Amino acid sequence: MTGLISLNWLIGDQALSDHILARVNELVDQGTEYKHACTTVTDGADAGEAWAIAATRQTWERRPDTDEDDAPIHRLYVLERTGNTVVVADLDLDADPDAHSTLGLPPRGQHLGDEAEGAVIDVDLLNLYDLTAWEPFEHLLPTAAVPAAGTTGVGE
């Protein structure tokens, strides 16, 4: 799922706005002019680039055209994003623990089977995956509007 319209439908305009603003602020903190940072982040998010859209509480699924050797884990769940890295867990462990493989991951990601800790990988590795679900923290609030679920968040 890519594109700002799809992301807005998936998580709502407030959560998407908060996410984009956080990415913009990161670029501004690194010395990028605000206007250029806004354009860079919105263009990246609209193109579905992982550096622009990767966040905590997301599910990513390996793209059909991606070689299994390049991305050995079929479905990843982002436990945490910190700068240019994400901590991910293997969502397929419960379905088939024997299918788990970390052979293609960098040395930091070799403990991916440890669900308590996850594995730290570069955010760019997510470019081999498609974003399939995103549950921002705002969705935990009783007043949250969740477009994909058909809720308005008010009085429900």
Score class of each variant (00 low, 15 high):
V88P: 05
V86G: 02
E61A: 05
E80S: 11
D65S: 13
A55V: 00
A89D: 10
L76D: 02
Q58C: 00
T82C: 10
R57V: 07
R63F: 02
W60V: 06
E68A: 13
L76Q: 00
P64G: 06
N84A: 12
T59A: 03
D67Q: 13
D67T: 13
E61S: 04
A71F: 06
H74Y: 13
I73K: 03
R75F: 02
G83Y: 03
T82L: 13
W60R: 01
D70C: 15
R62V: 00
Y77P: 00
R81L: 06
T66W: 05
E61I: 07
Y77R: 02
D90Y: 07
Y77N: 10
A89M: 10
W60L: 07
T85W: 08
R62T: 02
R75I: 01
P64L: 07
Q58E: 06
H74M: 12
V87L: 13
I73N: 01
R63Q: 13
Q58F: 05
G83A: 12
D65I: 07
T85K: 14
H74V: 08
R81I: 12
V88I: 15
R57P: 04
E68Y: 14
R62P: 01
R62Q: 01
R75K: 06
E68M: 13
W60F: 09
R57H: 15
E80H: 05
H74L: 11
A71L: 06
A55K: 00
E80P: 07
R63E: 04
T85Y: 13
V87T: 14
D69I: 04
T66I: 07
Q58N: 10
H74N: 12
T82G: 08
P72C: 05
D67C: 04
D65M: 09
V78Q: 10
R57L: 10
G83E: 07
Y77M: 04
V88Y: 01
L76N: 06
R81G: 05
L79P: 09
R75D: 04
L79Q: 15
A89R: 11
D70R: 15
I73F: 08
A89C: 15
N84F: 08
T85P: 10
N84W: 15
V88D: 03
P72D: 03
A55G: 12
A54H: 01
D70G: 07
V78F: 12
I73Q: 03
V86A: 03
I73C: 06
R62C: 03
D90C: 12
A55H: 11
E68L: 11
D67A: 15
R75M: 01
D69M: 12
V86N: 05
D90H: 04
T59P: 07
R57E: 09
R81S: 01
D90R: 09
Y77L: 11
A54K: 02
E61N: 00
R81K: 14
N84I: 11
D69A: 12
R81D: 01
G83S: 10
L76W: 00
T59C: 00
A71C: 00
R57I: 04
T56M: 03
V87N: 04
E68R: 12
E68Q: 10
P64N: 08
R57D: 09
D90L: 08
R81V: 05
